[in-house]
Design a protein around this nucleic acid. Sequence first.
DNA 1: GGCACCGGGCTCTGCCATAGGT
DNA 2: ACCTATGGCAGAGCCCGGTGCC
Length: 406
Amino acid sequence: MQSSLSLRQMSIPKGLGYLTIMAPRNLLYMRSNFLFGSRCWMIRFSAEVLLKSVSFRLFSMKCDNADSEPLESEELLNNLLTMGVDVDMAKKRQPGVFNRRGTNEQNLKTFLLSKGASKEVIASIISRYPRAMTRTPESLSYRWDLWRRIVTSDLEIVAILERSPESFFRSSNNLNLEKNIEFLYSVGLTHKCLCRLLTSAPRTFSNSLELNKQMVEFLREVCLSLGHNDPTGFVRKIIFKNPFILIQSTKRVKTNIEFLQSAFNLNNEQLLVLIHGPGAKILDLSNDCMRRNYTNIKERLFSLGCTTEEIRKFVLSCPDVIFLGEKKFSDKIDCLIEEKISISQIIENPRILDSSISTLKSRIKELVNAGYNLSTSNISLLSWSQKRYNAKLKKLNTGQNVVLGN
DNA sequence: GGCACCGGGCTCTGCCATAGGT
DNA sequence: ACCTATGGCAGAGCCCGGTGCC
């Protein structure tokens, strides 16, 4: 009888309450709350109308330091429109930003321009994450420097911000970021690995230190409960193989590990090998998705005459296949079967499902044209690298020409 | 040289919910 | 009441090449 992992008994610490170091609001915002608090909405409304209609020019004569003076919302809107920001999108995403007094959009623009971001990228960043313009220049600059300790150039950071503005701007807690960097190094991750984490899963660095610690601790507990004696190496390996692991919840990862153990009836050692080996990549799949995709693979292969053991072996030899959604998996299988490739050929060469449908189709067509008999020959070349495949195809075609020439 | 085996490189945001501060 | 900071979720592949055996 196999010993079972008592994951269910392992505690997942609930968030201990995030470290809240709020960005200090500017004085005028506080003053305006005092003067124009909710109980005085009528006064506020009247005052705003008065300010807009009578002393707009006076009110909007702000000095260079945007922190010390408010931006009248009309001016904010004008600024944003001039910058090319999609104001409707921004308002829909974070309406609160537009109600506050004192935003730093001009400073943000100047800052990002100095780092090499284009005007279009800046507009896109603000459109998608308007809270970015509430950050102070000092805070931005320090955060940027901390990121630069990990990546080598400003342009790399710009590329990340363009992809995911939220990762950089969601928090202004730079102390937490510093502690995260320190913590990740202390786990034994190399500089290269941190760089990969930052480019692949930048959210990791905006997580609270506590949240990252929870995941690392959870993985260490899994390792120890499975009887492995090097939890540090284990954690390092999983994070290296799956840089997204730290932006998943422990609940999701725990559920997936339990699923893999029960679905494949693995003992502790087999499970250990799977999750810090080929299975590391699929630990961050949503629980439903993993269950759904695996059930689909099982049902489809079963209907094609595969045995349970064959299916088990097939998936374990290439767990990435669980990434494939129902349609994609079926389309790939159909496309291969249509070309008289047998299901036994497919399950013996699971890596061919790595290739995209278009690659499979074009290669099948080229190979058939070259006289290659897919149902009797090796099909692994369907998943070779382009370079190797081209060389092979060239030889096949040359060989055919020689035969025809004879 | 030809191929099997295998590991690794890229890559993953944008939205919602909610606790807690002002 | 409103805003901010943070946690958590859904969604879902493809490609390259080193190494070693024959």
